[in-house]
Design a protein around this nucleic acid. Structure first.
Lengths: 331, 331
DNA sequence: CTGAAAGCGCTTACAG
DNA sequence: CTGAAAGCGCTTACAG
């Protein structure tokens, strides 16, 4: 482990000069710079990150909080964040905080306060009042991937309006008996709840009655909820909006198993445009979590570069993608 | 931001004593300890991690390298690692290194050498000779989740034998025309390749001809490969072993779409026991990646505590789980 | 049981 | 353009 003192000695300069040469900050003659760089190369010198952090006050790492990793959305989001972070030469510290887990408590109480990071990206979580207070007390740059929230930059699709659009698509097709699959109270991300609200809003605006089959945002849970919902042929809805594509796909599989054909006997629409959506010919509202991850990093970098930089709220892109899981109801 | 000097001043002791009282290392009278702890509480003091790291040489974070996050196995593995790390009061720095991505190169060349971590867990990646050399030069505790590898602790199921068992299950049922779906050259994890080897071995031991439909380890890719494989009714196999459950499930979906019934006309077996496996009544070889993650942390902690501790190779548990996707071939 | 001092490895004004 | 010195905030022998 060579230190900057070793490099300086080998190049025949002071530590200060070696530091300047390597960092590119401050004046150094080209000739000296070259000598220092060569010396560093010879010794395979790499600055000790803790020492740099202590001296500069920057850790070079960004903390990312997600409620789960086993949803396509968050997997893609984290991948996008990772890519952008690497470009910015920043590390990613991951906190996978399932709702209600003891981990969540520990992270907020013990881990986060250590501030081993320069900034924080919180995705899909709804902090409690107490948690929010803790977050703010950290005095670190903060970006939320989720709904508009005062005092911090945000990026997200408008979950409520997206769910409304999905519901209206079904309504326009002529359906009135439309159920919502998903948004189970426990474990729902903040976005899930807003999607449920959007569905309800569209339904009541159309004078139709809401009907919710609670499920987690996973295929098996959507499957189970739908199997139940669809089991009685007399009371079954003619259409379903899934809180996300996982729930919608679970619904399609349940329908197939029950011999209900999609879309002729049951229309199903999802939200997300999951990687598997095409395979099931699922009509859905597309969004691009990977891009949102990159965007979150951009927002965070802006705050990092200038803590007084403007707060931004970016509305991420979404689009209705018509495939083959929705149709007019059988007359 | 209060420092330990503030705490010491408020408690009326020296920094050294304050440090001892807070860390629990070294003698401090109970009364002084209490005074220091109170002072720290009053000031909501939290030690600055960079300073601690610099003084102790420990960063308190563990780097985790995975080839992808969008496979159930790795998602679960990371969740298990995260849980165990939090218990050990360690942070997780994540590097999601898709094979062949420019990220991979950067991580090995620039990021890892900074050693912003005490130890490293590498999962499912096959380092090139050059990469391996770099890893070793880091002189950090290293644990691999993957096949036995000299010089480092490992944990994994025996991929080769597990694939052999899956294949033999089909052979025992009376199948001879058994295809393997998965293990596409690019993007395959090291485990995927060994599973292919295990399949080949079992087939040739039984005097049967191998037949591979390359696919990535995802549902859509398995679906596409299987759709192709099964399209010609005259040449289609009577059974398929999927490199993992995602590939196997993709195969089942393709079969359904083609009107081929599972298991009466086609047997399908997977490996993993994916969260969605039950939904598809998939017979599979179960493993517990979450436990493997915890185990990897245990192995790493042992090396961290004592760099000369024994290297361990733990064989993770696996079990054939019979559900309803395999049967004797139609006569 | 406690304190003074040195040290971890950088960076950054400040002089020159 | 370069160097000496101080400082970032901890911890840890070493004395006492």
């Amino acid at each position: 482990m060579s230190t900057i003192a070793d490099v300086a000695a080998r190049a025949g300069v002071s530590k200060a000069t070696a530091s300047r040469a390597l960092s590119g900050r401050g004046y150094v003659s080209e000739e000296t710079r070259q000598r220092v760089v060569d010396a560093a190369g010879d010794l395979s010198y790499v600055a000790h990150s803790s020492a740099t952090s202590l001296a500069t006050g920057r850790t070079g790492t960004i903390a990312v909080i997600v409620p789960t990793l086993d949803r396509w959305f968050f997997t893609e989001l984290v991948a996008g964040i990772q890519e952008a972070l690497l470009d910015a030469d920043l590390d990613l510290a991951l906190y996978d905080i399932r709702e209600g887990s003891r981990l969540r408590e520990r992270v907020f109480e013990e881990v986060l306060p250590r501030r081993r990071f320069d900034g924080l990206i919180a995705a899909g979580i709804q902090p409690s009042a107490q948690e929010l207070e803790r977050l703010l007390r950290l005095e670190r740059a903060l970006v939320c991937v989720g709904p508009y929230s005062e005092g911090t930059s945000t990026v997200a699709i408008d979950d409520m309006s997206v769910a409304r659009i999905a519901t209206e698509h079904l309504l326009d097709l002529g359906h009135t008996d439309i159920a919502f699959v998903g948004a189970e109270a426990t474990g729902a991300s903040i976005g899930d709840e807003r999607r449920l609200d959007g569905y309800r809003e569209a339904m009541s605006a159309a004078g139709a009655a809401s009907r919710v089959a609670p499920a987690e945002s996973t295929m098996p849970s959507g499957y189970a909820a739908a199997a139940d919902l669809l089991s009685d042929r007399r009371s079954r809805p003619t259409a379903v909006v899934g809180v996300c594509d996982e729930a919608a796909i679970g619904t399609i599989i349940a329908a197939r198993r029950l011999g209900i054909s999609v879309p002729s006997q049951l229309s199903v629409i999802g939200i997300d445009d999951h990687r598997d959506a095409e395979m099931f010919a699922l009509t859905t509202i597309r969004q691009h979590p990977r891009d949102q991850g990159r965007e979150a990093v951009r927002l965070l970098s802006a705050r990092l570069a200038d803590p007084d930089a403007e707060i931004e709220h970016v509305a991420a892109a979404s689009a209705l993608v018509m495939r083959n899981s929705t149709a007019a109801p059988a007359s």
